[in-house]
Nucleic acid binder design. Structure first.
Lengths: 213, 213, 213, 213
DNA sequence: AATGAATGAGAATTCATTCAT
DNA sequence: AATGAATGAATTCTCATTCAT
C-alpha cells in the first residue's frame, strides 16, 4: 500500500503557507485537467514551490490528492454539522434549500469537489480518495434524512441519502461545467433546479410515508 | 488537430470482430481504470490482439475512446428514437419509467457509459468525446420533455432535460459502482429510486405548469 | 549481409512497368525526404502498387535503393562511354563542357542522383549503395582524365578525377536544391559555374604538366 | 535481484560538461550513421548519460541536431571573421590557402560538419538545420569574395561563393571519407587538391575581370 | 531543511516485413 | 501470383521520485 498521509505537519508559518499553496495549485489543476494528466512538477511550478519541497510534505502524488480531499472533508463536515442542528426545527423545504445552497456555495468555491464526489474513479487512486469522503458524507446525509423520513429503515434512509447526494453533486457539477462552456446564465438556471429536484423527490417520499403510516 | 476517426473500415469479417474486441476491451478498461490510466498495450492484450493491429484500425488512443463513445451514441439514439415515438401516447409515469428502464439496461450493459456521461473531463481528450455525446443526448431528451412540458420555452426545456440526464446518469453510475463494492442489493435499491426521482421532479413541474396555465 | 539483389526479373510487360513505377516513386521520395524517412508503404502507395507486390520484386527496402542506384549506373555508363570516345579528338574545353552538360542533364532528370553521389552516407545502407556507384564512375572519370593528363600517375589521375566528380556533383546538387528554394535563376547561375570551375582546375593542371614536361 | 554495484557514482559532472558530452556523442554518431539512423538512446549511451538527462537539456532529437549545428556555426564564424580581416592585405593565393586550410582543419576536427554542409537534406529536420547554417556561411564567403572580385554584382559574388563552398566542402567530405575507407594517403592527396581547385577557379575569374575592366 | 538536476521504467506510436487468403 | 491485413520490435519522449549538494 502506498503511503498517503502527510509526511510531516509543517510547523513554521512559511511551511503551512507552502502546503496550502501546493494544495491550491493541485486542486485547480486536478479540476481542470484531471488527476492523471497533472504532473507533480506542474503542481510545484504553479505553487511556486520547488518540487523537492513538495516531496518534503507529501510522500507521493496520491498523498496530494488525499490532502485535497481532506480539505473537502473539513468543509463538508462543517456544513452537515450545521444542517443537522437545524434539521428538527425546519420544514422540509427550508432544510433542503439550506442543504442545496450550502453545497452549491461550497462546490463553487472548491473547484474539483464535484469531480471527486462523482466518484468517476478516473483512476484507482482517485477512487480511493473519493470513497472515503463519500462514506462520511453519506453517513451525515443519512442522519439528516432520518429526521425527515423516520419511518424508513436505516438502509432505506441511506439509499435516499445516496440518491440525493448523487443527484445534487451531478447537477452542481453540470452547472459549474456549463458556466465555463455555455455561459453563466445556463449554469445558474441548472443550479436553480437542484432545489426543486430534491424537494420533489423527498416530498413525495414523505407523502408516501404519511399515507402508509 | 488530432485524427480521431477510424483509420480503416474493417472489410473482412474477422476484422470487424477484431475491432469489436478492441472496443470491448477498451470500454471495460476505461470503465475500471479511467482513460488516462489505461495503456494501449493493455487494451491490445485484453483484446488478445497485437498492438500493431490496434493501430491498424485506430490512429491513436484518443480514436479508440471516440469509437467507444460512438457505440454509446448508436445505442442511445435507438433508445431516444423509440421513446420519442411513445412520448405523445403515454402518461408521464409510463414514459419516465420507460426512459429510466431503457437507460438503466443500456448502462448496465455498457460499462463506462455513465463515466463518460458524467463528463468529469478527466482529461481534455475525454471531455471532448463526452461533450459531443452529451450535446446529442441533451437534444433528444429536450425533445422528449417538450411533449410533457410544452408550455416551457425551449431553453427551459433543455435545462430540465439536462437536470434529468445528470441525475439519472449519476444515480445509475452510483448504483453500478455500489453493486461492485457493496453488493447487488444496494445497487438495485439505488436504481429503483431513479424513477421516483425523475417522476417526482417532472410531475411537480407539470403541476406547476397546469396551475399557471 | 542483407539480400540486395532483385528477387526476380519481371517477365511480363505489366511486371516490368510495375518495377519501373516502384523505382520512380522510390527515387522521387528518396530525393525529397531521404532514404530513412521514406516508408516502403509510402513508396508502394505512390507507385499505385500493393505493398505485397513490392516485396515480390524486392527482398527489402535496401534492394529498392540498390535498384535505383543501378538505374543511375546505367545512365552514367552511357555518358562516360560516349565521353571516352570523344576524349582524344576534342580540346579540353570542349571535353569538359560535354562532360558537365551531360551530367547536368542527367542529374536534372534523375532526382536524387546527386544526393547519392555526395555519398553523405545518411545510413550505412545508403553508403553502401553509393560506394559501389562511386567506384565505377571514378574509374571512368579517371580514364577520361588520363587522356588530358597522361604524365600523371594513375593514382594522381584518380585523385583529380575524384576531385572533379565531387565538385561537379556538389555544384549540381546545390543548383538543383536552390532551384526549388531560391528560384530557377539562381539555380541556373550556379550550374553555369560548373564548367569554369572544372576547366580552370584542369587547365592549370595541364599547364603545370606542360611546364614541367 | 541483489544490488551488487556500489551506490550511484557521485561523479556529477557539471551541466556544461554533460551537454558537451551529449553533443560530442551525437556529432560522432550523426557523422557515422546519419541523423535518422541514430537513436536518442544510442546518443545517451555513447555519452554515458541516462536518456532522461538528455531530455533534460534537449526537448527532442531535433534540438540535439540544432545544437550540434550551432557549435559548427560558432567555429565557422570565428574562421570567417579572421579571414575577412586578412582579405584586403593578402594576395589571392594566400587568402584562398588560408581559407582552405582553416576549413580543412575545422572539418577534420568536427566530424559530421561536411555532411551537414552538403545539405543533402537527408530529412526535413536536417535540411532545416543545414539551411540556416548555409545561409550564414554563404554571406560570409560572399563578403570575402567581394574583396577579390569587386567588379561583380553582389549576386554574382554570391554565386561564386556558393560554388566555392560547395566544392570545398565536397572535396573535404570526400577526403575525410576516403581516409577511413581507402587510407590516409588518398585522403591527404585529395585534400591537397582543394587549394588548386579554388585558386584556379577564382584566378580565372580575376583574370577575366581584369581583362574586361 | 531546502533544492532541482538526475534517473530510467514505461507509454504511445511506427514501420519493415510476412503470410493467410 | 497477388494482395493488404497483421505483426511486434524498436523508437521517441515523459514524469514520479530520489538524493547529492
Amino acid at each position: 500500500m502506498v503511503e498517503t498521509s502527510m509526511r510531516r505537519t509543517p510547523q513554521r508559518l512559511g511551511a503551512k503557507q507552502r502546503v496550502e499553496a501546493i494544495l491550491d495549485a493541485a486542486e485547480t489543476r486536478f479540476a481542470e485537467q484531471g488527476y492523471e494528466s497533472v504532473t507533480t512538477n506542474a503542481i510545484a511550478a504553479a505553487a511556486h514551490v520547488p518540487i523537492g519541497s513538495v516531496y518534503q510534505y507529501f510522500p507521493n502524488k496520491e498523498a496530494i490528492l488525499a490532502a485535497v480531499a481532506a480539505r473537502y472533508r473539513e468543509g463538508l463536515l462543517a456544513i452537515y454539522d450545521r444542517l443537522h442542528q437545524e434539521a428538527a426545527q425546519q420544514p422540509i423545504v427550508a432544510l433542503v434549500a439550506d442543504w442545496v445552497d450550502s453545497v452549491v456555495v461550497f462546490g463553487s468555491r472548491r473547484m474539483g469537489f464535484t469531480r471527486i464526489m462523482l466518484g468517476a474513479g478516473e483512476s484507482p487512486t482517485l477512487a480511493a480518495a473519493a470513497n472515503a469522503l463519500e462514506q462520511e458524507i453519506t453517513a451525515h446525509a443519512t442522519a439528516l434524512l432520518g429526521v425527515l423520513l423516520p419511518h424508513l429503515s436505516p438502509l432505506e434512509q441511506e439509499v435516499r441519502a445516496r440518491v440525493c447526494l448523487a443527484a445534487l453533486h451531478a447537477v452542481l457539477g453540470l452547472a459549474l461545467r456549463l458556466k465555463g462552456e455555455a455561459g453563466e446564465a445556463v449554469g445558474w438556471a441548472i443550479i436553480e433546479q437542484a432545489k426543486p429536484l430534491l424537494i420533489a423527490y423527498l416530498s413525495a417520499e414523505v407523502a408516501r410515508q404519511n399515507a402508509s403510516g
